[in-house]
């Protein structure tokens, strides 16, 4: 478990405090234009600082651990939070939606991150938290977005396309024949952000992880290689997660009797 290099310049406490003065730009603007954001700005700044400092402590502790079950447990907890947050951003719910989301997030991120640490990046041991946890975090953050977009779009699509779907069913379509357009549309929409971000990668956006590695002294070539692996991981995990969650929602909102069960949808 050797760190990549000895690292970038350290930011002292004094300079860290100084950086907080930058928020005064926002506060000043808010006061001058009476945006009413002063309070939220200060609260958000404070939360950001406290949360990150805490995460810093947690990660320092975690990176010293060498106990596979513990690290996997932390990973599972992260996946659980991602699965729950994904549902919280959708407009409607159905019984079992949290379970569906959890299953999809966990299965897709475990599969893809597992393949990455055992086959592509191969840290020794495979559960080295310095690799596993950040990789998993990046995958989860993106899968979460895909899943909320896909789920939301699927439920709204069935709602707004209800008459079309039932017209097809009434003529003798199977539930898949009647719903496939809605399913496809939901998966397509959920994949768009990933595709977009890959399109402009390096041109418009320099990803945070790559910037971090370069500041830490990694060569741009090494950082770019990591970034490429990460993006492919994100793309495949998002695809798997979205496919899983939309598939499960489809199973829940239709029945084996080829009925549309929107009565199971609340909100």
């Amino acid at each position: 478990m050797t760190p990549m290099t000895s690292g970038a310049l350290t930011i002292s406490d004094g300079r860290l405090a100084l950086s907080a003065l930058l928020i005064l730009v926002n506060v000043g603007l808010s006061a001058a234009l009476r945006l009413g954001l002063t309070r939220s700005l200060l609260v958000a700044s404070l939360r950001m600082v406290v949360q990150l400092l805490l995460v810093g402590f947690v990660l320092e502790w975690l990176f010293r651990q060498d106990h596979a079950p513990l690290i996997v447990l932390v990973g599972a907890a992260m996946a659980m939070i991602a699965g729950i947050s994904a549902v919280q951003r959708t407009r409607r719910r159905f019984a079992g939606i949290y379970l569906n989301s959890l299953l999809s997030v966990m299965a897709s991120s475990a599969l893809v991150t597992g393949l990455a640490v055992t086959g592509l990046i191969q840290p020794q041991p495979w559960y080295d938290p310095q690799y596993l946890i950040p990789l998993l975090g990046m995958v989860l953050g993106n899968t979460l977005n895909g899943i909320s977009l896909g789920l939301d779009r699927f439920m709204e699509g069935l709602r707004s396309g209800r008459d079309q779907v039932e017209t097809a069913l009434a003529l003798g379509a199977t539930r898949w024949e009647a719903c496939q357009e809605v399913v496809r549309d939901a998966i397509r929409v959920a994949m768009i952000p990933t595709i977009n971000s890959m399109m402009v990668m390096g041109l418009v956006s320099l990803p945070g992880m790559m910037t971090g590695q370069i500041l830490q002294g990694a060569t741009p070539d090494a950082a770019v290689r990591y970034q490429i692996v990460i993006l492919f991981m994100i793309a495949s995990a998002t695809a798997l997660g979205v496919f899983g969650v939309v598939g499960l929602a489809y199973g829940r909102l239709t029945s084996a009797d080829h009925q549309l069960r929107l009565d199971r949808l609340v909100g």
């Binding site: 009434a170 003529l171 003798g172 379509a173 199977t174 009797d257 080829h258 009925q259």
Partner: peptide, 10 residues
């Protein structure tokens, strides 16, 4: 069910 609905058509 699909055949039923094609014969009892709503």
């Amino acid at each position: 069910l699909p055949r039923w609905r094609s014969m009892v058509l709503y």
